[in-house]
Design a protein around this nucleic acid. Sequence first.
RNA 1: GCCCGGGUGGCGGAAUGGCAGACGCGGCGGAUUCAAAAUCCGCUGUCCUUACGGGCGUGUGGGUUCAAGUCCCACCCCGGGCACCA
Length: 863
Amino acid sequence: MSDFRSGSDVELFEPYDPQAIEPKWQQYWRDQGTYEVDNDDPRPRYYVLCMYPYPSGAAHMGHVRNYTFGDLLTRYRTMSGDAVLSPMGFDSFGLPAENAAIKTGRHPRAFTDERIEQLRSSITRIGGVYDWRREVKSHDPSYMRWTQWIFLQFFENGLAYRKAAPVNWDPIDQTVLANEQVLADGTAERSGAVVEKRDLEQWYFRITDYAQQLLDDLDQVDWPERVVTQQRNWIGRSEGAEFRMGVVTAEGQPVLSAEGSTPLEFSVFTTRPDTAFGMTFCVLAPEHPLVSQIVSEPLRDKVEAFVTLARSTSEIDRLSTDRPLADRGCFTGAFATNPFTGDAVPIYLADYVLATYGTGAVMAVPGEDQRDWDFAGIFDLPIVHTVQRPEGWQGEAFSGDGPHINSPSSELLPPAGDLDLNGLNTVDAKNAAMDWLEASGCGERKVNFRLRDWLLSRQRFWGCPIPIVYCDACGIVPVPLDQLPVLAPDDVEFTPTGQSPLLSHEGFLHTTCPQCGAPARRETDTMDTFVDSSWYYLRFTDPWSEDVPFRQDQLAQWMPVDQYIGGAEHAVLHLMYARFFTKALSDLQVLPADLREPFQRLFTQGMIRLDGAKMSKSKGNLVAPEEIIDTLGADALRLSHLAVKPPEEDVDWEDVGLEGCHRFLMRLWRLAVPGSDLTADLRTGEAQSVDAAIERATHVLIDGISADFDRWSYNVAVAKFMAFLNELYRYVQAPEQAHGPTLQASVDTLLKLLAPACPHMTAELWAARHVEQGDQVLPDAEPAHVHTTAWPVANPELLLQESVTLVVQINGKVRDRIEVAPDADEAACLAAALESDKVRQQLQGAEPHRVIARPPKLVNLLV
RNA sequence: GCCCGGGUGGCGGAAUGGCAGACGCGGCGGAUUCAAAAUCCGCUGUCCUUACGGGCGUGUGGGUUCAAGUCCCACCCCGGGCACCA
């Protein structure tokens, strides 16, 4: 603790001791229930939510940053008169606890509960205030019950289903993953393992039913453009046409199905139906179900070898573009009829055609698609141009717009006799081609999405069990609602193999069928933890309900979340899933019909970089928040996070200016604490013009801070606090002395404005100034606790300065600055400008031929 | 390749089209001290000038405007996301 009194002086005032005051106020807010809010609160409602954390033990700097923003908003809105719902909970299922159990043999629940305890205490030490009565935990049976209930609602309504498909398998975490959890390079987002493809039967949520709504409703939320764009990309809507092509032999004879009755055909999806006259071959995915039926006998061995190879190639290799194209495709010996031309075109297989997108088959138009062009070059296939190249075109395939040609070509007498795209541009040709497809019955307009259904099963123990029973007689049977929650047993052993102990737990595995009573088998998979986090924000509105997951009237009161705060890394994971849950539950009439989006405003804060090149080893251990709280205190830590950068930007830890913030707090303490040397000798009596200037500056500050808080310009707000305190220091140290009432009112206002950012120190100083000196009760009878005072409102009359600086420019260059009255008009400003010595010197007697005046701030003279 | 951000002092950054560099860090100087730390006060874009002053300056090149860090066009660089999606 530094000491700003000279050694021999007696102690005048209490030193700033964050270690003493911070725990005291944290206890006070908890005891008083200052930030508990009831559902019948008459004040206007505001729901602020930080993404609930995975309990990883003590808080790290990312938590500090996140919760500082959220907590500031909670306290600011509360002082502004709102009933603020600010809940906190824990996303407490997940692999770290299970991996720890595999290592130590300890049950994941014990591990998790311990970590929750640590994190809760850590969050409290940061100064975060929450309505802890509403705390929810994913692994709490009273929460799991409703997670399972929602699953069953989805199951009953066809939104949860089981299917066999090639899925992403993570060999390290030993579980399947959703597409969203696999990175573009084919590695797992969590474990970093190279993901394998396996054919498994798994549970899915039908999120694709909502693809269009998930896309459309992005217009209704107030979210960062970046996140909206990422969601749009992920949903990946594309418009085009789907049409059927009949399979024929090399001789042009239709190929019949195995039963011999129906001719084989398949569908292709294309976004460029206008170029269909240029199709010279088509390509199926190796996994396409028709492959084995259409392959010509001489090529069967070769094709089967190719399919086997493609299926066993890892995703990472299959997506790699540097493998030679010749190895990636294979001719089937079969042909298909292009309905536009009547021509038979060869059918190829290629591993880059994805079985899971569109129809798993594409038409290939090398003239207008570069990948098809490359493929045609390798396999020596013809190329037809269907769009006129622009003058001087040097490239290969041309995907731009232009008049269509060869559509049909002049020598061809097409089956599409009445279809002529020649001369049309792309848009018109597309429409004409699609009209023709629909009229002729060959195909139709079609919209495809990149978004796939959400694979939710996980082969893990520490997650919410899927409440399903398999019965030989009845099939897939949901566990009856009155038997929820299905809980995993406690007497489990975690083996080093990593396999879920549920698979080998006889007591859990064997049950009876709820429908027929026969012996049956339980589902051993648990749910993706993103299921838990897809609805927790709903439960916060009414976490006490025993008979329902939440109540419609409470939801209507609080939802949607007014301000959601979290990391941008959840742009397409959690945020997409939660939006889907809200829409689906609303359609199932579990949520209010008009609740279609869960999070009205989203703020994504930047990340803290600790390990960048800039971070030296010796500083590496400076980043534990608790160590900083132990020394400088939580208020300095919070303030430094606010000050360092705009909140949405990433932060290098070394840029966080703790010293400056700590110095500021020490200076404030010294000025505001009762008995300060700085305020020992204050002037009384009438206020003078210097005092009026301080009063005006105070109101300018009120105005500025309120605006900065509203627009999340926290770094600018901190700068204003510091500048204002500097001004007060100059004021109290000036020879003519500061005016007592003016100074104290300004300091009080400063304490209020700073209270959301630095809650402990402001509470302590406020109490010291207004409570502990019992004989000095505030004139306007303010509450004794700064956080329950009303947010100050600036007096508009005091926002006008006594004089303003008039900038005088000559030919756009600043030549002088003159103080003028704030209400000076154009004539007065011009007169003042022309009187200036500097201006006269510059003008040298010349007359300005034009004057631009923006009274009272600027005059520009043109000569 | 496509889509988002972003390039301002030694550093982090500020600036409804109207004084570029607020505020902080760092640096320099002064006060205080036996001394140091802490504290308090001041200076701190750059070049020319003893000074008074003045020139130049927000990634590059153009443009609009009385006036551009801010708006428009073209380009360069950095960060992030997406990417064989037919």
